[in-house]
Simulated assay, not measured.
Amino acid sequence: MADLSAFPITQKWTPKDPSVLQLFSFPTPNGVKASIALEEMEIPYEAHLVTLSDTDVKSPEFLSLNPNNKIPAIIDPNGPDGTPVGLFESGAILIYLAEKSGKLIGETASDKARTIQWLMFQMGGVGPMLGQMGFFVKFAGSEWEDKRPQERYVNESKRLLSVLDKELGDKDWVTGQYSIADIAIAPWLNALNFYGAREMVGWDDHKNLVAYLDRFMARPAVDKAKNIPPRP
């Protein structure tokens, strides 16, 4: 039985089975990246609900694993060096899980490079820009009289969607094969509906993206993982 006592987070979220990977998350676009990857790669894991309240994400226990106070984070009791390893940042977690399982990162070094390229496209572009747009469309920023910030993020989101729509013109998945790049990108595309922003960015005009997201959401692992851990 693995000993995870060196991780203070386990004092607040206690593992039932410390021999399997521990996921600390909430089903946001970033959070479900980890649960979808774990389901797709068939890695045994235990999910712990970490709400987005300061009580959880800014607790000393959670900060001990992720000083940046964001979900998701993991502890793998079976780390690559024979000892448990803790990780935060969804992109880093996706790469780690893909390398651990040998799945969804490509078969060759070139495949891997392209996969990580599009993963970084999501991390540096799609996630931050659509997330900021959501703030200015659905949340507090929508009340601002000055609409220039909203326009800036809506226009940049449109540009990024056009890049993806063009890339998917002749293939089902962003690198040609289903990968962690898709697991990173698609949940953020799905968030456009939550933000109430689909019409604003001309979603229906991006036919390749519409079909892409439908394919992604129809995957059994995605359907199972999209609400793991379950919302309270």
Score class of each variant (00 low, 15 high):
Asn66Met: 06
Asp76Ala: 08
Phe88His: 14
Ala73Cys: 08
Asn78Thr: 06
Leu94Tyr: 12
Pro60Cys: 01
Gly86Gln: 04
Gly82His: 00
Ile71Asn: 14
Gly86Lys: 07
Leu65Ala: 02
Leu94Asp: 05
Gly86Cys: 07
Ser101Trp: 12
Ser101Gln: 09
Leu87Thr: 08
Ala98Ile: 08
Asn69Ile: 03
Ile93Trp: 14
Glu89Arg: 13
Ser101Arg: 07
Asn68Lys: 13
Ala92Tyr: 15
Phe62Met: 07
Pro84Cys: 04
Ala73Met: 05
Ser64Cys: 00
Leu94Asn: 05
Ile74Tyr: 12
Ser64Asn: 02
Gly91Asn: 15
Ala98Met: 10
Leu97Ile: 14
Ile75Met: 05
Phe88Ile: 02
Pro60Tyr: 01
Asn68Cys: 02
Glu89Pro: 09
Glu99Pro: 00
Lys100Gln: 06
Ile75Gly: 05
Phe62Val: 02
Val85Ala: 02
Ser101Thr: 06
Ala92Leu: 14
Leu94Thr: 10
Asp81Gly: 12
Asn66Ser: 10
Leu65Cys: 01
Ile95Gln: 11
Glu99Lys: 15
Ile75Ala: 08
Thr83Trp: 00
Ile93Thr: 14
Leu87Glu: 09
Gly82Leu: 02
Pro72Thr: 03
Pro80Asn: 07
Asn68Met: 11
Thr83Asn: 12
Asp76Phe: 11
Leu94Met: 15
Pro60Gly: 00
Ile74His: 13
Phe62His: 09
Ile75Val: 12
Ser101Val: 02
Gly91Gln: 15
Phe62Asn: 03
Leu87Gln: 06
Pro84Gly: 01
Ala92Ile: 12
Glu61Pro: 04
Phe62Ser: 02
Pro60Lys: 01
Glu89Trp: 08
Asn78Leu: 13
Asn78Arg: 03
Ser59Ile: 07
Ile95Met: 13
Ser101Phe: 11
Leu65Gln: 03
Leu63Val: 01
Ile93Gln: 14
Ser90Glu: 08
Leu97His: 12
Ser90Ile: 05
Ala73Asp: 01
Gly82Lys: 02
Ser59His: 05
Ser101Ile: 04
Asn66Thr: 09
Ile93Ala: 14
Ile95Gly: 05
Asn66Asp: 06
Leu94Ala: 09
Asn69Gly: 01
Ala92Lys: 14
Lys100His: 06
Tyr96Pro: 07
Ala98Trp: 11
Lys100Pro: 06
Leu97Ser: 08
Pro67Asp: 08
Phe88Ala: 00
Glu61Gln: 14
Gly86Thr: 06
Leu94Ile: 13
Lys70Gln: 15
Pro67Trp: 03
Pro80Lys: 05
Glu89Gln: 15
Pro60Leu: 00
Glu89Ser: 11
Ala92Met: 15
Leu87Cys: 09
Ile95Ser: 06
Pro67Lys: 13
Asp76Tyr: 09
Asp76Cys: 10
Leu97Met: 13
Pro80Gln: 04
Ser59Thr: 07
Leu94Lys: 04
Ile71Gln: 13
Gly82Trp: 01
Phe88Cys: 03
Asn78Tyr: 10
Phe62Asp: 01
Ile71Trp: 11
Glu99Leu: 14
Ile71Ser: 12
Ile93Val: 13
Ala73Leu: 05
Pro84Lys: 01
Ile75Pro: 10
Gly82Phe: 04
Pro67Arg: 13
Ile74Ala: 08
Ile93Pro: 11
Ile74Pro: 10
Lys70Ser: 09
Ala73Ser: 12
Ile71Met: 15
Ala98Ser: 15
Asn78Phe: 09
Ile93Glu: 14
Leu65Pro: 04
Asn69Tyr: 03
Thr83Phe: 00
Leu63Asp: 00
